[in-house]
């Protein structure tokens, strides 16, 4: 597959073959990297990271990926320090930056910004989050993490926990998992259930979906538990929030009945939805997940630059 010049804006545009291809290339690069320490596929290439809103860990992950590929990085980490603040249009910023670089990674607070940037730019654009819409590299690194941990995604029983109503990460992940032969447990408070249209779509695609509010009772079923944060502002009153928060905290007590091989994931940063005591257990996969971001982003950068 030749991906040279391709934009990565939305996971919606990925077929199962596309996903599998990226994961395969990422695995190859991870292997090469651990053998050689650093690679030089992107030598002489420049990545521009345009972060119109701060997201330090995503930016560092992309920058690390580009450096690991032997390329270099320019960019900004918040709109405050740029001409955007003076009222420059996104289109003008993109047209300017592409004169200095070979590929653009953009994060922007408005939904659709990455799509617009991709339409304006001649060079490839990778979406690192557009408002509450898409964050496709997160979805791909989540899939990669699961695949590396289990060898295969097919056949797994996966729990998605937390704010399933507003959480863009879990929506995209669930939609991507629908390509695979998986069973999904959607675990959330009543108020924060997965939107009906997504649940229906998953079922139409043949995924066995269970919706529940009961974390403790569901844990023994799971191979993977994907935890997301529940935000206070989603609840009408403090009392209700605290009740929910308490019953969804992942700690050693609640993990008593878990399968031995259960892996816990989290897009990070976490607050207190996973107790730190879990970090040292065999279940914790979330730091590994952070690491996965690098080979996956290396794959996407390298493929769209056409240097692999």
């Amino acid at each position: 597959m030749d991906w040279t010049g391709r934009d990565v804006v939305s996971i919606r545009e990925f077929s199962k073959d596309d996903i599998e291809f990226v994961l395969k290339v990422a695995e190859r690069l991870e292997g090469e990297l651990s053998k050689k320490g650093s690679l030089d596929y992107a030598r002489g290439k420049i990545l521009a990271t345009l972060f119109f809103e701060p997201s330090t860990r995503t930016r560092l992950s992309f920058e690390s990926a580009m450096h690991r590929l032997g390329g270099s990085v320019i960019g900004f980490s918040s709109a405050a320090s740029t001409s955007v603040k003076k009222g420059e249009s996104l289109a003008d910023t993109i047209k300017t930056v592409e004169q200095y670089s070979d590929i653009i990674v953009i994060r922007h607070p408005s939904e659709g910004a990455a799509r617009l940037a991709a339409e304006v730019a001649e060079i490839p654009v990778i979406n690192a989050g557009d408002g509450s819409n898409q964050h496709p590299t997160q979805t791909l690194l989540d899939l990669y993490t699961i695949k590396r941990a289990f060898g295969s995604i097919d056949g797994l029983t996966i729990g998605l926990l937390g704010d399933l109503k507003y959480g863009r990460t879990v929506h995209s992940l669930a939609e991507a998992l629908a390509f695979y032969d998986v069973e999904l447990h959607l675990i959330s408070p009543e108020l924060l259930r997965m939107p009906k249209h997504i649940v229906e779509e998953l079922r139409e695609k043949g995924v066995k979906v269970h919706e529940t509010t009961d974390l403790e009772g569901t844990i023994p079923e799971l191979n993977v538990l994907y935890v997301t944060r529940i935000q206070r502002e989603r609840f009408p009153d403090e009392e209700e929030y605290l009740k929910v928060k308490g019953s969804y905290q992942v700690n050693q007590t609640i993990l008593k009945n878990a399968k031995d091989g259960l892996k816990i994931m989290h897009p990070l940063p976490r607050v207190d939805e996973i107790h730190p005591e879990v970090d040292k257990s065999e279940h914790a996969l979330y730091f590994r997940q952070v690491f996965s971001g690098v080979p996956v982003r290396m794959a996407l950068l390298g493929l769209t630059l056409g240097v692999l």
């Binding site: 249009s89 996104l90 289109a91 922007h108 607070p109 408005s110 939904e111 659709g112 910004a113 799509r115 617009l116 557009d130 408002g131 509450s132």
Partner: peptide, 11 residues
């Protein structure tokens, strides 16, 4: 969607 880029830029 008020936060859509199509409502914020000349698009």
């Amino acid at each position: 969607n008020p936060n859509c880029i199509s409502n914020r830029e000349y698009v």
